[in-house]
Amino acid sequence: MSEKNNTLTLSKAIQAHNEMVTILEFREPTGRDVRELGYPYQLNQDDSIKLLSGVTAKYIERLANIPMSSVNEMSPSDLNVASHLVAGFSTRSERRRINMPTL
């Protein structure tokens, strides 16, 4: 599995839109996406970050344009990498501004 820019190469193919898919391309989220789905992580009092799996799954569905049934087929390791990619959209610039830990 590899992550380059907004593209994720899956370690295990999934079925999406009646074809087998091994690469997911993610668009950047908009403010509307964040308003409708919420942030994909929780920032704790000790500055640790907890990924919210239900929210990140909805982002994967929307940003990679695949159905939730395809998200459900993803291997745990692919889902983890995709979740970090999603969270990274909103933490990249913030990390620099407020010294946030890397995911």
Rank of each mutant, 00 (worst) to 15 (best):
G38T: 03
R92P: 01
L79A: 13
A87S: 09
P76L: 05
H84R: 14
L8E: 08
E73F: 07
P29A: 03
E94P: 00
V86E: 14
M74D: 08
E61S: 15
G88F: 04
R32S: 06
N65Y: 09
E3Q: 13
D78F: 01
S2P: 00
A16Q: 02
M68S: 13
V81P: 08
V86S: 01
G88A: 03
Q15G: 04
K58R: 14
E36D: 12
I98G: 01
I23A: 13
F89D: 01
Y41M: 02
S11W: 11
Q45V: 15
E73S: 11
N6G: 13
A82K: 03
I23F: 15
I49K: 04
P67N: 01
L51V: 05
V71H: 06
S83D: 09
T56R: 03
L52Y: 00
A82I: 00
E3I: 15
T30S: 14
S2L: 11
V81G: 06
S70I: 06
A13F: 04
T91S: 01
R92S: 12
T22A: 11
L10M: 05
N80C: 11
L51S: 03
H84N: 09
E73L: 02
L52H: 03
L8V: 00
Q45E: 13
L52V: 14
Q45S: 10
R97M: 06
G38A: 00
V21R: 02
S83T: 01
V71P: 06
P76D: 12
N18R: 11
V81I: 14
K4D: 08
T30E: 11
N18P: 00
R97G: 03
E94L: 12
M20S: 10
I60C: 02
P101I: 02
T9I: 10
E94C: 03
R27P: 07
R27Y: 01
T30K: 09
E3H: 10
F26K: 06
I49A: 04
V71S: 05
R92K: 08
T56Q: 01
A64C: 05
V71F: 00
T56S: 07
S11E: 14
D78L: 01
Q42N: 12
R62Q: 12
S93A: 00
N6A: 09
K58P: 03
R92E: 08
K50S: 12
S48V: 12
L103T: 07
K50L: 12
F26R: 02
M68F: 15
T7F: 03
S77E: 15
V55C: 05
A16S: 14
Y39P: 02
D33R: 01
P76A: 08
Q15W: 09
L52K: 11
I66Y: 03
V71W: 06
H84V: 09
A87T: 09
N80F: 15
R92C: 00
S77R: 13
S83H: 01
P29D: 05
P67C: 06
E28C: 09
I98Q: 11
Q15H: 11
N72T: 14
G31E: 07
Q42S: 10
S77N: 14
V21K: 12
L10P: 08
M20D: 09
T91V: 05
R95V: 03
T91E: 00
S77F: 15
E3K: 12
